[in-house]
Computed example of a mutant assay.
Amino acid sequence: MVALAVAATAAVQVGMWIRYEIWSDRINSQLPPEIAAELGRLEDAPKENTKRLHEIYTQYSDLFVSPTDTEDLLVQALLSLAIIPFVVVFALILARRIAQPLSHVVVAAESVSVGQFSTRAPVPKSAPAELQRLATHFNKMAQQLESYDRELHDSSAAIAHELRTPLTAAMGRLQGIMDQVFPLEEAQIATVLDQLVQIQHIIGDLQVLSLAQGDRLQLEITEFAVREFVDERISWAGPALRKCGLQAVNHVDSVQTLRGDRSRLGQVLSALIDNVVRHASDGGIVEVDFEAGDLSVELIVRDRGASILPDDKDLSRFFERFWRGEKSRSRHAGGTGLGLSVVHAICKAHGGHATAAARAGGGTEIRVRLPRAGMAASTGKQTI
């Protein structure tokens, strides 16, 4: 719009200049040819030829009559009126370039507001750069909302399934006891209790994920010995390890320390060991190691089971909630499908991340990378 205003002003000035050029040419055409030629030479150096110029202007004064101010204003007004249609046309074109992308974004926003998250606003190449960025960022927002909505639906269905399975089993077992199909004995009660414990684990994992997603997962940061911490978690997982014939090896040096929330990181290590128990027990071994760098530290869990990471697609989805690889690495099944999502959430709350990679010769290596300096201790502790 600024350029349009400048162009309109310049057009009026050019018109006035052309008018004075025409006036000058008319004077030269009425002068005798020799006088006109002499006047042109004299006007090239007016200071040196003042006297002769004055003589010519006086002699032909009737020709050198300048336009009046009224005439100038009239010509300027006519020029402005002639330019106005062009200004209006170009202004409408510019306004359309601005209004059309905005109207597309408005229509798309109305669709998104009623839940149609797949709607996208077109990004015209002819639109100003700012409006292109607006439409592009709106589309990114809509894409993210669509992803969240899809994840919400998928998660709701998966949560319902994961809770329904153990709950149905527990109710069926209790109904069988009441109908005297099963005897009322400790083994039957233990079976029901196992199903209830599984439901409790699902609820606990969902609460951790919810707190982490809302940046409300509070951490109690302390410094602790890593080897002792790993031995403790391996000991807790001892019955499950022995049941599936897995050998756990702690490679962590006794001098290594780590700053973080010991309880939360314990959840991480237990979840990784449990993942090996369920999906890689055929490898016969689970190894835990620790590497310290200048800026970060890594807690590493390795197994030798048959890899479930055949391609990059599996790698990118490894820490998604309720995702399981299509190829199971052992005969063992079960789990909530939330353990590795909890690992990712707790790592992120510490300012780190977790990665998974297939090992040469078979197996998987999961690395939990955390900032070396740790995080400032939080003011409180959220208990799950």
Rank of each mutant, 00 (worst) to 15 (best):
N250E: 01
C244M: 05
E228I: 00
L211M: 07
D231S: 06
T168L: 08
E228Y: 02
L152V: 07
T222H: 11
A237F: 00
K243P: 00
P166N: 09
E228A: 08
T191E: 11
R164N: 09
H153L: 01
R173Y: 10
S155I: 02
R233C: 02
I202Q: 05
S156L: 14
E146S: 12
Q200S: 10
G214H: 13
A225G: 14
D179W: 00
D205I: 01
H153M: 00
H251K: 04
V230Q: 10
R164Y: 08
S235E: 03
T222G: 11
F224M: 13
D179L: 10
H161T: 09
A142V: 05
R233A: 02
A212G: 12
E220I: 03
V192F: 07
W236K: 14
A158P: 08
E146P: 02
A169K: 12
S156V: 07
L217Y: 09
E185N: 14
G204S: 05
Q207W: 04
E186R: 14
E228H: 05
N139E: 04
V230Y: 09
V208L: 13
R173F: 04
H153S: 00
G214C: 04
A142L: 01
R150F: 03
V192H: 12
L163K: 09
T191M: 03
M171S: 14
A190R: 13
D231N: 15
Q143R: 07
V226T: 08
D149Q: 07
V192G: 07
L163I: 08
L184F: 14
L241W: 01
F138A: 15
V181Q: 15
